[in-house]
Design a protein around this nucleic acid. Sequence first.
RNA 1: GUGGUUGUAGCUCAGCUGGUUAGAGCGCUGGAUUGUGGUUCCAGAGGUCGCCGGUUCGAACCCGGUCUUCCACCCCA
Length: 455
Amino acid sequence: MAKKPGIPKGTRDFTPEEVNKRNYIIETIRGQFQLYGFQPIETPSFENSETLLGKYGDEGDRLIFRILNSGDFLRKAGAEAIENRDSNSLAAQISEKALRYDLTVPFARYVVMHQNEIDLPFKRYQIQPVWRADRPQKGRFREFYQCDADVVGSDSLWQEVEFVKLYDAVFNELNLKGVSIKINNRKVLAGLAEIIGASDKLIDFTVALDKLDKIGEEGVKNEMLEKGIHQDAIDRIQPLFAFQGSNEERLDQLEAMLKDSVEGMKGVEELRFIISRVAGLGTKASSLEVDVTLARGLNYYTGAIFEVAAPEGVAMGSIGGGGRYDDLTGIFGLKGVSGVGISFGLDRIYLVLEELGLFPESVVEQTKVLIINFGDEEAYYGMKLLESLREQGIKAELYPDAAKMKKQMNYANKRNVPYVILAGTQEMNDGTYTLKNMRTGTQETVKMDAIPYLG
RNA sequence: GUGGUUGUAGCUCAGCUGGUUAGAGCGCUGGAUUGUGGUUCCAGAGGUCGCCGGUUCGAACCCGGUCUUCCACCCCA
């Protein structure tokens, strides 16, 4: 007997129902991307290792799936690395390809390679799976979809405003209310580090600050101390731990703290612009909130930083993120091209919609009409009807076998098919068919050429 | 990558300090009902107890390893 099959940790099969629901989300996002003027591209599922490695920090490198070379690669590998059991050195010699880790770096690579065909500013969207060798948890997989929209070649803050509106439009169409779009700015974080004399510890400082809602004020302070940030420096940012009020009030407080930092003040100014314009334009399903503790993607973000939190009460990590990276393509040799973009986490949005029961019923309904099969002659009769139904755009099918009535009805019932058509010798003689509503149980016999109204 | 947790029928779960042929509900198949499903009744099928090894007269239960699940770190969609 063959061993029971399985799939790798952190991957999933999707049932027809799940695929339908996923497609509903994808089509909603895709539709809004197009409405906002983004154009689709796709990139390979794997890239040259050197394209990816070193772009996401040490932590990121660890999570990149690497692809073993083909052939007898060990023969060519350096004996030294094997002898010393040096995995890192050996890996570089026996693996030269790696699975895509996100969609942003491949996009940067794309822009550089296609720079002569692209008209700047270039707005692209991309909906594809990415892979991370992470340890799975709820809402965290090793294979998952990102839905990205980015613009390169424009420094305008109107892009940031547009992205907030885009987020809002998608969540509104998905009927997902109460989403919170958090925004921060790398320059503000850099300014804070600067005024406390910890510019060299920017990453440690912000990573600690980012954990405020998780480990609390004391936890954050302890972590900062552990990272070598002095107590008197921490005291100077004390107001951060008691940040309150409206976005404007928070920005006022920030400004007061950052008045001696040119960079910090620039960050506040940028935030002010985005906040005020979005406030003026309004949002439907989500709210935009300044969150000074937000510190994601610091390895490449240089301006705005976005993170999207599910509505309150839903235990889920962020369902989206993004930000601005000046010089996005610099790592691949094309200087002076700024990029800004956002990402939707399809798999997490799915879990949130599922938890809140927000999938429309129509997403699951597939076939509208099932024609019962009483035998070849009757099936032939039914086929003619099938054709006209399909011409009307009504999803319809014939039960392929002349199985027992009960079995066929049961099949329709379990698959949630709302209508069944019965056409046997009686109907064939009269030139009619019988249409049964499976929800109400009522049925009527109508002329063969009458297309049913299926409400 | 670190620490913990989970795994028994298709699904959700019982299963006593280790002791005969491992159970329930739901689902599934067939029948009651030869052109009428969802309700009801009757009958039936389905499990190498995640996998490998060990302890024991005897293991679903104890021990070790491994895979998987979920959780906390790390990090992140």
